[in-house]
Design a protein around this nucleic acid. Structure first.
Lengths: 234, 234
DNA sequence: CGGTATCCCCGTCGATACTG
DNA sequence: CAGTATCGACGGGGATACCG
């Protein structure tokens, strides 16, 4: 893996496995449940497939990931050691939720946001049957509108992200800025505050709109920062 | 700092600050209480001073560290944001303590081990006055013998590492291998097991020897691995 | 879909020497 | 003690093209 530190310290030995670029983000994707090469790519769109492949091999060699091939499908599954990295990912997340201030414009990405939302739809919260959600960003002129197609037939659930009109009437339309929805998503802003300030609006049947925020299980770190944290620059 | 990931995810934003080589190890040193440039170097002996300096500047720019100059002394002190990284360091440590198997020979380093021991001497556990501990490694031919000079005058405590005979009669002499003491230190082996198997022997007044392991506050992660963890290769 | 192969650049890092 | 200056290499990683 990365170059050795030649230190016995467990932190050093662990970081030998994790300190290369993208590795922890890949672990995050695996912890969040992605297993297919294509899924991993969607969560890491700026990582080249070559590098993704190399990282997966490295993690497999380190015993963190197991490559499984079944029925012509390849899946990368965390081993127990890999799953045990969840507290590491969580602690990084918690720190970031508290101490990362304003995001740069370059950190905002509708594709990634929708992809992240799609995998956190709460099966118990969405209505049965098909529900299409339309999200329109006021500040993404080149591609303002996205859709989530939720198909719930408990206990099964499928959620797809579309960047073209899926052709079904949306039950909820979200009108907001990419930054606002991202801030809600990362816990820097609550749904209520976003709605109250009208930076985010929900169009549709009012009872449905009221319940809509509950469709998504926000990452648990995503609680409002406990301190009025001064943003570290960088 | 490191190259941006262009992701809003808090894990990604945090890793932008931490994923470069040596950064997390430097944070570890700071969390453990080192503040002087020279102290930091001793804990990171294979890191060049140039790089250490650069990393400190980066951490300062990111708001994790504050450089303080007082009375001609320079100190690098964690900010609140920096101190808040302790759970990250801890989670990495915990993972490593459980999942890192055998250490490579290159990971063993008497200088680093003594340096780590020196800062974990428990002021309340050592005898008052001066106590010299001699550590002789059976497997470090080029430099087998090291000393800890502990000076306790509660509530003050000073501990020095010597690689030359400090000229005072040791009260305890440790005879073991570098690997054995390292394994005790990282929690892969208990003092009792090491003593019982005679892989580690303590020479000196017997009551003193019995209490000797208690002189050191093992890092709290250093509990025996809960599972008979298969070593990930790597 | 699930990857490999190749290529090249640039930045990181390591080493060493040197300064106030 | 507390760093800075300089320099070279090496390889990580980005981009792109390609294969089964």
């Amino acid at each position: 893996m990365g170059a050795p530190y030649h230190q016995f310290c467990p932190v050093a030995k662990t970081m030998e496995l994790l300190d290369e670029r993208w590795t922890v983000l890949l672990v995050r994707e695996l912890v969040l449940g992605s297993t297919r090469f294509g899924e991993l790519r969607r969560g890491l769109p700026r990582m080249s497939p070559t590098l993704l492949s190399r990282r997966l091999h490295q993690l497999a060699a380190a015993g963190l990931v197991q490559r499984r091939e079944a029925a012509g499908e390849v899946r990368y599954v965390l081993t127990e050691a890999g799953r045990d990295l969840e507290p590491v990912v969580r602690s990084l997340s918690t720190w970031g939720a508290r101490w990362i201030g304003e995001l740069g414009d370059r950190d905002l990405d509708p594709k990634l946001l929708l992809w992240d939302m799609h995998r956190r739809v709460d099966a118990r919260a969405v209505p049965a049957g098909r529900s299409v959600v339309e999200v329109r960003f006021s500040d993404v002129p080149e591609h303002p509108t996205w859709w989530l197609v939720v198909d719930s037939a408990p206990p099964s659930l499928s959620v797809d992200v579309c960047d073209r009109d899926p052709g079904h009437e949306p039950v909820v339309r979200v009108r907001t800025s990419l930054r606002c929805l991202t801030d809600v998503w990362r816990g820097a802003l609550s749904w209520e505050a976003a709605l109250r300030s009208q930076r985010l609006r929900l169009l549709g049947e009012s009872a449905l709109c009221r319940r809509f925020p509950g469709w998504f299980a926000l990452p648990e770190y995503a609680v409002p920062a406990p301190a009025p944290a001064p943003a570290p620059s960088g």
